[in-house]
Amino acid sequence: MDFLNLLARLADLDTPTLPAAAPRRTALSQLGKAGTALLPALLTGLALPAAAAAAAPQDTRTRLDALRLALQLELLENEFYSRALGLVTGFSAVPFSATEKTALQTIQRHEAQHVTLFQRLITDAGSALEPAARYDFTGSKNGTQPALYPDIQTNPDTFLQVAQLLEDAGVRAYKGQVEFLQTDAYMLEAALRTHSTEARHASHIRTMRRQRGASVKSWVSPADASITTPGSGAAKVYEGEDNATQYVNIGTILTKVPFDSTLPINVGTPALTAAQILAKVAEAFDEPVNAITATALLQLFTY
């Protein structure tokens, strides 16, 4: 890394929002940041002990994979909203109301910001970005198979249905990746802060659909009218979301929480049945999906 580039990076890290009397903790974090940026040069420039060399690639693959999955998701979402808003050449805007358009513009702006964030996290760690993917949100893989959503560029209801799929899937995908980022407090928090922003998007998209007459709550519920065909690729977005079994660690043993039997949560009039309580439990927890499932979902709209 050349010296001017390093200085430029240090200047970039000197965020103007920090208070003038920056706490020592912040100063430490900036040193840490520069250390991260320098790391690839150090690693390639030095002969590593064999054990360290063997350990390093595994570490890189794990966290890098989590960041790359996040970036793939954000790139796809950004393109999805950009096309619907008429921001991409060759795609005319989907006819939304002014209120809907404003909300979607806000969401698109976040997705673009998330793209920038994860690109920076990846490149600052010295890793390369992957080639840009090609998207087909009709699900026809560029006309090579029947379209899943043929009117997505013209029908707001279809668009919002797919938006709900993508936002709910995104929330689940981030949830599945946080465990790979736990050892890095900064990346963990960045992922979690992205994750809850996506959850807010998902909630609003669902509210928009409800305002258009769809039977759907702002959280994932067994009571939602299904928007996927059982057994289809898209159905994986909601597979397992109806889970009502949660576990806590008692010592080293995972123990099921007895929501439906002993807990004092049933005070409604009339009282809820056990099945109705479990439906509330299912709503109260969003479930993760792993990288394989998340990638398969992204594949529905890429070719």
Partner: peptide, 11 residues
């Protein structure tokens, strides 16, 4: 993580 996204949906 399972809980916070539901809280965010509420919010």
């Amino acid at each position: 993580g399972k809980i916070v996204s539901v809280e965010a949906r509420h919010a």
